[in-house]
Design a protein around this nucleic acid. Structure first.
Length: 222
DNA sequence: CCAGACGTTGTT
DNA sequence: GTCTGG
DNA sequence: CCAGACGTTGTT
DNA sequence: GTCTGG
């Protein structure tokens, strides 16, 4: 699963994903992005690859711009073609990239309490979560762009950290074009857990628990 | 037919 | 325990 | 994901 | 909006 992550919209991200900035602010960054917040996304519309901000937590069209009561910040890869909220975007090829530098998972400790970990590509290489985007319109016509992050069975590294046995779909910049442009059957073959051998993780401060905390020290090993 | 859900995770 | 807010 | 609220009446 | 359950 994935419920907190680290991202930025700097020149390196723009270069890595070869996009035209729309709502991307130069050098925006967060070390502690939580569900319901705006996140940078890359999506392709009218043949152009654009960088937008989207609410993390997909809002279906039939919710008229209001966040649903049920959880939509993650979408099980196994349910993309079935779930009412995700089926439409999946079939309409509304796939997006959510650029990131790492994400957090919490490990239940034997005694009690949870130890957060930072998890990322080896060496901190840029990557993107694979997701879906959607638009939903308020009664007054205002459109809301939102997104979800797809989850898969956890690989060995993530599985060791939490018993949840789920992890986000991670894509390299080299896979970006295929994810945004392939037809459904081809995109389906990309629903693979990123190799554990190409990832690293370490314990970080429980300061990350608080949504308001946002500084570079959050990702430092403790 | 209408009513109600629409989602994910983990489980001392 | 369960929901909401961030 | 975690943290924090979870309620009412009437009002410094 | 669309599907499932009754």
């Amino acid at each position: 699963m994935c419920g907190r992550f680290v991202s930025r919209t700097d020149a390196a991200m723009e270069r890595a994903f070869n996009l035209i900035p729309r709502q991307w602010r130069p050098d925006w960054q967060s070390f502690n992005i939580a569900p319901s917040q705006p996140v940078p996304v890359v999506l392709q519309r009218n043949g152009q690859r654009e960088g937008w901000m989207a609410r993390w937590g997909l809002i279906p069209p039939w919710c008229h711009g209001e966040p649903p009561k049920f959880s939509t910040f993650n979408a099980r890869a196994e349910n993309l073609g079935k779930a009412a909220s995700f089926r439409g975007p999946w079939q309409r090829r509304q796939r997006c990239l959510i650029p990131a530098l790492g994400f957090y998972e919490w490990q239940q400790q034997p005694g009690a309490g949870k130890q957060p970990y930072l998890i990322r590509r080896l060496g901190g290489e840029i990557f993107a979560f694979g997701g879906l985007w959607e638009t939903s319109s308020h009664p007054d016509g205002t459109q809301v762009l939102s997104c979800t992050i797809i989850t898969l069975p956890a690989n060995e590294l993530v599985g060791r950290i939490h018993a949840k046995n789920r992890m986000p779909l991670m894509l390299t910049p080299e896979q970006a074009e295929d994810w945004l442009e392939r037809r459904e059957a081809d995109a389906e073959t990309m629903l693979q857990s990123y190799p554990a051998a190409d990832m690293e993780a370490w314990p970080v401060s429980t300061r990350v628990n608080r949504v308001g905390a946002d500084d570079e020290a959050l990702i430092a090993p403790i």
